[in-house]
Computed example of a mutant assay.
Amino acid sequence: MGIRSSNCDRYRSLIVALQEQNKQVFLVSGGFHCLIAPVAAELNIPPENICANKLKFYFTGEYAGFDEKEPTSQSGGKAEVIRLLKEKRGFKTIVHIGDGATDLEACPPANAFIGYGGNIIRESVKARAPWFITDFKDLEEAL
Score class of each variant (00 low, 15 high):
M1S: 10
I3E: 01
I3G: 00
S6D: 13
Y11S: 13
Y11E: 13
R12H: 14
A17F: 06
L18E: 07
L18K: 12
K23R: 13
K23V: 13
Q24S: 07
V25A: 07
F26T: 00
F26N: 00
L27G: 05
C34W: 12
P38M: 06
P38N: 02
V39L: 05
V39M: 03
I50T: 00
I50L: 07
A52C: 07
G61E: 08
Y63R: 07
A64W: 00
A64H: 01
G65N: 01
D67F: 10
K69C: 12
T72H: 10
K78A: 08
A79T: 03
A79L: 03
E80V: 05
E80W: 01
V81Y: 09
I82F: 07
L85H: 04
K86I: 09
K86P: 03
K86F: 10
K86M: 09
E87N: 03
G90M: 12
K92P: 13
K92C: 15
K92F: 14
I94G: 08
I94M: 08
G100Y: 01
G100D: 13
G100M: 06
G100R: 04
D103E: 11
E105V: 07
P108Y: 13
P108D: 14
P108I: 11
P108Q: 12
N111P: 08
N111S: 10
F113W: 03
G117M: 02
G118H: 04
N119Y: 01
I120C: 12
E123P: 11
W131P: 09
W131V: 15
F132T: 05
D135W: 02
F136N: 08
K137E: 07
K137V: 07
D138H: 14
E140C: 12
